Amino acid sequence: MATGGRRGAAAAPLLVAVAALLLGAAGHLYPGEVCPGMDIRNNLTRLHELENCSVIEGHLQILLMFKTRPEDFRDLSFPKLIMITDYLLLFRVYGLESLKDLFPNLTVIRGSRLFFNYALVIFEMVHLKELGLYNLMNITRGSVRIEKNNELCYLATIDWSRILDSVEDNYIVLNKDDNEECGDICPGTAKGKTNCPATVINGQFVERCWTHSHCQKVCPTICKSHGCTAEGLCCHSECLGNCSQPDDPTKCVACRNFYLDGRCVETCPPPYYHFQDWRCVNFSFCQDLHHKCKNSRRQGCHQYVIHNNKCIPECPSGYTMNSSNLLCTPCLGPCPKVCHLLEGEKTIDSVTSAQELRGCTVINGSLIINIRGGNNLAAELEANLGLIEEISGYLKIRRSYALVSLSFFRKLRLIRGETLEIGNYSFYALDNQNLRQLWDWSKHNLTITQGKLFFHYNPKLCLSEIHKMEEVSGTKGRQERNDIALKTNGDQASCENELLKFSYIRTSFDKI
């Protein structure tokens, strides 16, 4: 039985969820670079991206490699990797027998973001014989899940209580170790020597080791999670996991709180800001991140802002960003909400898709409305799209047979046209069989910064309504002859009103 693990408890099935942008060198404390989270699957090609990484700022997932063999891993080693800020997950990587050479110096898994409450997941690794993470000293947050690894031993010899604050939620089941077939031998045991430290858990006094050649490092209890030197002297209180010299914040392997210019500090002093819960960055760093993602459509890219001495992905609820200094300031009234469309555009074809934009005031991208039916549609669209004030790209209304009016965009005031449909149009209306009105132009103002209007096959939309939009939106004169079809717009509506004058002759039985 794995020490510190839980057996036999019912657990939810383990679901495996399925960018080499360097964020800056980590400095003297770390020998390499800070790398983003990685999802490495199918083959070993991307694994080489770990070569210079000291910190993975995010998670590391290595999974679904069915053609790899043990010899493929023999020359692979990433000794610079010290810390993973989120979680480490391995799933069905064939041929991998140990992690001792792959990650010989991995010391800390912070667990800032977890995989279903777990910071370390080893699942269905069919050839893994031992973990071998002999320098792993601290899992700051989260638990361990090690399950269905039929060859995995050296679990009962690990004292997880020396690595985690609590072992109650560890789930370590259905491994070879369960069948008591392992016969784990710690260093020196074969020669009758006791080389590794022994600890007591559940009444068992057991030597602690990761492999037959690597003991588990056990520091004096007084050192807590700070770690200790090879001689057993406690590291500085700002260290986490390990250090090369005692009581020196510049000799830590990793930091308990924050890293700044080669030393570990309790908090980031001005003019620095907390970033990702582990390091200090200056304003320029946060500003660069903001600008890199301002026009990016890459998933996970955030326009970072500053709030409460932190550089964070977005302002919290009730705050909006001051564009001059990136500071989050309290909103006066309802907060603006910028919604970034991942692929640059979004099609609204149902109430469900409209709900995804609920509360958005600025759309960074283009909207395509293609709704053919739905219950209580006008009210639903207004509830979900009615706060949109600005669209950076274009607005396209296409084959939306259920629409009679666009009044559900009740606050839309600006279409920038930074991206144009077919390279020309910022407003595009095609084949809307029941569209009769755009907006009530006596109450609604709309500016279209650039781009043209396109109207074709809107049989109940009168040309007068379209011409009014040209005047109000500032697009009059931009359109070419064929942009607004004269014969297919309003051709099934009563669009022309003329005053009919009647004269009559009164007659009676005795007068003409």
Rank of each mutant, 00 (worst) to 15 (best):
D248L: 05
T157R: 13
H48E: 13
F115C: 04
N282T: 07
L60S: 00
S323V: 14
T157I: 11
I139M: 10
I122E: 01
C234T: 03
E97L: 06
S98C: 06
V281S: 02
H59E: 06
H236N: 09
F116W: 14
L60F: 02
N105V: 04
Q216N: 14
D177P: 14
V265E: 04
S324K: 14
Y259V: 06
I222S: 11
T211F: 07
T329C: 05
N117F: 10
S213M: 12
D72R: 02
H302F: 15
K176M: 12
R162A: 14
S213W: 07
N309L: 05
C234E: 02
N52T: 14
N150T: 09
D86T: 02
D177T: 14
C301I: 00
E124C: 04
R141T: 02
Y304V: 10
F258H: 04
D169T: 13
Y304L: 04
K100L: 09
N195L: 13
D247Y: 14
R145A: 11
L155Q: 11
C153Q: 08
M137T: 08
L326S: 06
H226G: 13
E130H: 12
V253L: 15
E49H: 08
H48W: 06
D178R: 07
L289D: 02
G232P: 07
T250C: 07
L76H: 13
D75T: 08
V265N: 02
G37Y: 06
P104E: 02
R41V: 05
F73I: 14
N202M: 05
G300W: 09
F205M: 07
L120H: 00
G241L: 03
V218G: 08
G232F: 04
C215E: 14
L44E: 12
L89P: 00
D169Q: 14
L102C: 02
D178H: 14
F116R: 06
L47P: 03
Y171I: 13
A198H: 14
L47S: 04
I222Q: 10
C234W: 01
E238I: 01
L136R: 01
L63K: 02
C255V: 00
L50K: 00
C35D: 00
I82C: 06
N170H: 06
Q216A: 14
L99T: 06
K217T: 02
I40V: 15
L63F: 03
S296V: 15
K176R: 04
L233F: 07
C35L: 01
V55Y: 08
A190F: 10
L332T: 02
T45A: 06
V200P: 14
N295G: 14
G241F: 04
G188P: 08
V253A: 13
I201K: 09
K191C: 02
K217V: 12
Y319H: 11
E57R: 02
M38G: 05
S225T: 09
Q61P: 00
T320D: 08
K80L: 07
N308S: 06
H290I: 05
N308F: 12
E124H: 10
S54N: 06
E207L: 12
G188L: 11
C153W: 01
F283S: 05
F258C: 09
L47V: 03
P246Y: 06
A198E: 15
P330T: 14
E71Q: 06
T189D: 10
P104S: 01
S317T: 12
T267S: 05
L102T: 02
